[in-house]
Design a binder for these strands. Structure first.
Lengths: 228, 228
DNA sequence: GAGATGCTTCGGTTAAGATCGAAGTATGAA
DNA sequence: TTCATACTTCGATCTTAACCGAAGCATCTC
């Protein structure tokens, strides 16, 4: 019965709590140093170093030396998707790491998922884009319509330019807190960075939370209204 | 940094080689007894029993007593999808459990993926359905067209009936051997069982391989032609 | 150069858990 | 009732690997 690829290796890599915490931290999309990841994993630097080299040879991480720092990132979007989908499964089975604390509501409201917006606001944005006819949805598949392309142009996003990249434009990503889809892909990334450039939202340091300014929140809710 | 669901638990469950083998065996879709799973994992019955109860309390498996047998199945399709996507990632990182053996080509040609057809033939079938306009594809999303509905009726599949179930009709599932999508969901299941009822194909015991009869293969290839 | 910072390697300890033998429980067959 | 089969529980062993202290290497600052 030795058939197919070896999932145990990958499972074991994710299966250690310290490594899982480091991977979850990297799901925030930022490149982090070994020292930062050691803190995220709650372990000393030596131990983290060993873990990181395992994760790298396992193909889940890539590193990039910059001066005396060593920055780690998830190897690619496929890894990020796997982590997120495991979070979804874990949440649905009730494997929670923590009792809902004060930080939790902010995280459920809006957070970074690799490089795009997730949480209540992420789900709302996609719902609104679909309802307004800017994005076509068939099952899990998403595509920008001609109408959507021109509307996104108004916000300041050049869809034609995004299309030329190798990365998929739209992708649906399952939200572990909302258990519904939000928008990933290069468009998801472009939208979030657009909000941050405009000063509508900013990232919290040391966390995946995304905080909207009062005015930014107003604009966002107006731009992406909900059907009632 | 204690945010979100605990992926380490699930990772650790999959991370043990014996458990991973048992889960992979269950990806074949059949309900298996503890004894069969012990063989699949290459361990004794006592050890398997301990593993199985862990997998069950972890929410990855469900069991059903029948006489003095105890049948185990993957808890739901979400688990099956996670396993398959981990296989995809593992394959793309070169984590292979075995040197390509004689059984391998058959497995790459056609195999069971939970309850639908995967491998070269599975990918071909979806490609052909899309090319003929029976299925619309946007990104990863799939939907049966009106034309497709009537064509499937001719084969003997009642799409309207499938639609009424809670399970999604079409879903794309990433093939680890082909690295392209094949058709899952209730329609994927219905198609495979249709082929088996007609005697076109049958399952190999103890394996995920699907073997086509000479005539069945001819019919299948005619029904799902490739663009050239 | 001297010193500080970021990270890796080495060595030894320790804890977790995978494993199996043996014995116990439940179900079915004779 | 008696025996066989399917599985679980208990107890003990043993391997794996996570962990940290200490020392070493590389890079930057001064």
């Amino acid at each position: 019965m030795k058939e197919g690829p070896d999932i145990a290796q990958i499972g074991a890599l994710i299966g250690d709590p310290a490594r899982a915490n480091m991977l979850a931290a990297l799901t925030g999309g930022r490149a982090l140093t070994a020292t930062e990841l050691a803190a995220a994993g709650g372990i000393t630097l030596q131990t983290a170093s060993a873990h990181l080299s395992k994760l790298e040879t396992g193909g889940l991480l890539t590193q990039r030396k910059q001066g005396r720092h060593r920055y780690f990132t998830l190897a690619d979007e496929a890894v990020a998707r796997l982590i997120e989908s495991m979070m979804g499964l874990a949440a649905s089975r009730g494997h929670l790491r923590h009792q809902p604390g004060p930080k939790d509501p902010a995280l459920r409201k809006a957070r970074i998922c690799y490089d795009h917006l997730a949480g209540d606001y992420g789900v709302r944005m996609l719902d609104s884009l679909v309802a307004s006819g800017s994005i076509d949805a068939i099952g899990d598949g998403l595509a920008v319509t001609a109408k959507g392309e021109s509307q996104l142009q108004c916000i300041g996003i050049d869809v034609g330019c995004l299309k030329s990249s190798r990365r998929p434009l739209c992708r649906s990503c399952l939200d572990w807190s909302e258990r519904r889809a939000h928008l990933a892909g290069s468009l998801g990334r472009a939208l979030l960075s657009n909000f941050m450039e405009k000063g509508w939202a900013r990232r919290m340091p040391e966390s995946r939370s995304v905080i909207f300014s009062p005015d930014g929140e107003r604009q966002f809710l107006k731009l992406f209204p909900l059907e009632s």
